[in-house]
Computed example of a mutant assay.
Amino acid sequence: MAISFEKAFAGHDKMLEFRSARAAVLANNIANADTPNYKARDITFDSMFNNEKNKLYLSVDDKRHINGVSELGGDSGLLYRNPSQPSLDGNTVDMQREKAEYAKNSLQFDTSFMFLDRKISGMKKALSGN
Rank of each mutant, 00 (worst) to 15 (best):
E52Q: 15
R81K: 13
A27P: 03
D117L: 11
A8Q: 12
K124A: 13
R22W: 02
N105T: 09
D34R: 11
D61A: 07
D34Q: 12
T111W: 05
A10G: 06
F18C: 08
A2F: 08
M123E: 11
I43A: 06
S106P: 00
S20E: 09
F109M: 06
R22I: 01
F113L: 10
T35D: 03
M95H: 09
L78I: 07
D42F: 05
D46C: 05
A31G: 11
A8P: 00
K7W: 00
E52P: 00
L56T: 12
A24D: 14
V93D: 05
S4C: 03
L78D: 04
D46P: 00
A103K: 01
N50P: 00
G77D: 05
D42R: 05
K53E: 15
A2P: 11
D75F: 09
A103N: 02
S121C: 05
A31R: 05
L127W: 02
D61M: 08
I30F: 08
I30C: 08
S87Y: 15
V60E: 08
S106H: 05
N105M: 02
R81E: 15
S106G: 05
N82D: 15
M48V: 04
L127D: 05
K125G: 11
G74Q: 10
R22K: 14
L56A: 09
G129V: 01
V60A: 10
N32W: 06
A103H: 01
M1Q: 09
K7H: 13
S87L: 14
S112T: 08
R19S: 05
E71R: 13
S128G: 04
K63Q: 14
S76Y: 09
F9Y: 04
Y102L: 07
I66N: 07
I3S: 10
I30V: 14
T35N: 10
L88I: 11
S4Q: 13
S76Q: 14
D61N: 14
D13E: 13
N54F: 06
F5G: 15
S47I: 03
G90N: 13
V69Y: 07
M48L: 14
R118W: 01
